[in-house]
Amino acid sequence: MKIDTMIRHVKEAFRSLSRNRMMTLSAISAVAVTLFIFGIFIAVAMNIQFLAKELDKQMALRASISPTATNDDIERLQKEIGKDSEVKSVSFVSKEEGLRRMKEQWGDDSDDFFRGLEGEDNPLPHMLVIVPQNPQEIKALAEKIENNNKNYIDQVDFGGGVTDDLLSFSSWIRNIVLVLGIGLAILSAFLISNTIKLTIFARRREIEIMRLVGASNWFIRWPFFIEGAVIGILGAIVPVGLVLLIYYSLLNALGVESSYSFFQLLPMWPLSLYIAGITIALGVIIGVWGSLISVRRFLRV
């Protein structure tokens, strides 16, 4: 298409948008409400995904080695488990190392508590930390290792269910938001199609003449598509800004970006880019969809 023609289409689109200002505004607001909900959803969903992945990464089996096992036994055991194709890595954590890590986690205030537990009094067992290839299979792997090495291993611990719970919670939220969002999307597409309908009506004489003199169907359609897309884009601006602002304040309030807390959130960047990109794209899709509905019905082109 020629640039001249495109410029004309864009001008036409903006002219009729400003001619039906009230309708345009209500369509934009409808899109904005829809996209606000979608924007929140995207932020939440991406964080849950991120969290699940982080948890998966940290997920490891902790096999407590029975006190009767010798150093040779432990070495052999570590090699054997490492050969399993379902195991990613095996590392040995001595009980002294285990105590030191625990102390670190609990912080400086706990010095008194740990003083009595050092040296011979250390109650912790030696451990093998086993990272599975596939975090989803962790439970089966735990059982297998425990059963195969009953002589040396007292107990195998795994993170147990946290990830599962998180994922099922997230899919539950996802379904609710999707149903709500799709309903709202249909409603906004309908409002947009009404707006476009008005502009088609206002331009029916032009359209009639364009068809008579042989304007191609796309030449007639383009301005309406642009109108729909513009409504979608304008409707996306406010919700994108609002969602990012809310997210930013949340990050600040929780201070999660700086701490080692369990509760880790995605940083502003590049999340903002995803939220803005996806939300604007959705706005355009809803807008074009809305205009498609009325153009098809009213133009017979």
């Binding site: 068809r211 008579l212 191609s216 169907n217 082109v301």
Partner: peptide, 19 residues
Amino acid sequence: DWKIPYLRRNIGVVFQDYK
């Protein structure tokens, strides 16, 4: 249908009410 516009480019139409 998509070819009709090209047919019409070769036909002029005049109406009673000018349009």
